[in-house]
Design a protein around this nucleic acid. Sequence first.
DNA 1: CGCATTCTAGTTACCGGTAACGTATACGGG
DNA 2: CCCGTATACGTTACCGGTAACTAGAATGCG
Lengths: 340, 340
Amino acid sequence: MPVRQSAKRKNGAARMREVAELAGVSRMTVSRALNEPGKVKEELRQRVLEAVRELGYVHNHLARNLSSQRSNVVGLVLPSLENSIFAQTVKGISDHFRPRGFQLMLAEAADDPEDEERVISAFLAQRVGGLILHSTRHTPATLRMLKSTGIPVVETGDLPDNPIDMVASYSNYEAAKAMTQHLVRLGYRSIALASLANNPRARERQKGFADALAELGAPFSSERLIEVSRGIGGGAEAVSYLAQRLPDTDALFCAGDVLAIGALLECNRRNWSVPKRLAIASFDDVEIMRYVAPAMTCLKLPRYDIGRRSAEMLTARMQGAEIAVKHLNLGFEIMQRASA
Amino acid sequence: MPVRQSAKRKNGAARMREVAELAGVSRMTVSRALNEPGKVKEELRQRVLEAVRELGYVHNHLARNLSSQRSNVVGLVLPSLENSIFAQTVKGISDHFRPRGFQLMLAEAADDPEDEERVISAFLAQRVGGLILHSTRHTPATLRMLKSTGIPVVETGDLPDNPIDMVASYSNYEAAKAMTQHLVRLGYRSIALASLANNPRARERQKGFADALAELGAPFSSERLIEVSRGIGGGAEAVSYLAQRLPDTDALFCAGDVLAIGALLECNRRNWSVPKRLAIASFDDVEIMRYVAPAMTCLKLPRYDIGRRSAEMLTARMQGAEIAVKHLNLGFEIMQRASA
DNA sequence: CGCATTCTAGTTACCGGTAACGTATACGGG
DNA sequence: CCCGTATACGTTACCGGTAACTAGAATGCG
């Protein structure tokens, strides 16, 4: 006695062939009804959709992507999953992708190009259709892999000198330089920069800071580049360092929102009035910056837009379009508040 | 004149068949050399690996997953991508998955079950091998879909009454209740709770709060359940509300770290001493809680472990193991500090 | 009204792997 | 020495779709 096909399946998921049989059409018609509705007559399309509903059919994008040699999946590589700064970028990406049927694959590569290489290699194995890399430093092997697959890539996190493909970012160098110039214009004479070590973006910020001071003929020495540890404690370290080693410093520029909060709290603890005893400026405008007392002067970076625009460029290219402007400098803004 | 096979390919990626030819073995041997190294003689395995290197071959997991009817991809649904609270959970998941060759697909479903249904449906189309849902409220259609595919699912964010499959979480009800009892023990007599609206987890916290007060015979009325808007501003709203409507309140329990910070800043602005004029306790222990003045009394929730344990259970099940304990209550801790 | 063109749906082959089974060789024990 | 069992690799069929091509029907146009 023949067993009905559907009863044979270990896995409950219906296949397109069953939908086709139920609707009395060929598989190809089902495929078209789902992917290019305009190419199937309304009546048949309805029959197909009803069969889909009845069987609880779920389109198999694995098979679709394999067969069509395309992909609706995009890989995103972030330096850190814990830093809420990146959350806005992820949100921008996700907001763009969701209504368009793209999926986001996420991985972390802690500012280590070797790590990034492994992660990208895994993404390529999944045959992602595009990549967003929050990093501009890559191993030669990574560059080779990306070149040879030819998938669209957006780099962000900084404006690289030799982009792989597309870019959507602001310039860490320019932003740090602008804020430094701003502080000088405000009258501060002895400025220090606190930033994290081992981070290419932090290094660009240091360069921007140093160059701004040099151009303005303001006093500068490398001891004004303070490298501190991650987290709020790092901000406190910076202030303690100033108290001990550079007590004449009148402004501290923190290359990160968390550091700035840490510095502010440490000033409070020491009863240093901000900005009178020490002015503080921050690199990132998160919500709390507007609410602390004094409100924090900072750079406002286009975090959300970086995500949105990256996703836009990527989907355009994945759908075969050529992009007119491949390198987006999304700029920044200085939010002048009370802390400096 | 015959064209060499490799020259025909539009897409540069080498296929397994080419690796097989170069190594002088069958495709199957290549597949085994990559997936079950023990089943291939060392010499052949080396030949295969060399061919892989020479051709820059990247294993196609799309084809692998389709053919093997398995999947190395897990879907994660979060209520919000912007809330840094979830970042720790994502990190826990990612840390577990990465060394094991699993990939993470991410999507947002803003505490809306309909939204979640769409997202899950898209994940099923991608044939994810498992799901982690930061939510315990689902549509009937969602439950049907998940039941029929039978893939392993971990719910988190709260302890649900009728779990779909596995659970790894703490109890919002119990946590809120414990903190409320703690505040009462500390001597506070007139306590209010600030939380967000339209959020099932917030509702559980309200219940725990109300029940704790009821059991202790402490005064309670529903006007002590303050619903505020998201963000730091929400915390300020709560304090303003108390100032106007319930000035005798001596402790404010904030159902979220951001609200607590907002409340604290608003108290500073009003020159209300914390905890003397108003004690504040928070629901989540983020780094800043230890550093604000006064340091914030709060609940410490196992955010990272939720991610790690969820991923552990999922990978075990995806590899065919049966799980002894499917429902994990990961508990919480009260961090007694200075703000209450 | 006849023929070229467009539309619609079906057929065939293939995407790039793996499962299941088959076969030859090596091995071990009675 | 023979046979049962591993071991190591190959063969065949299939996973669930889509591209490219084909054929028949409908439509447009001079």
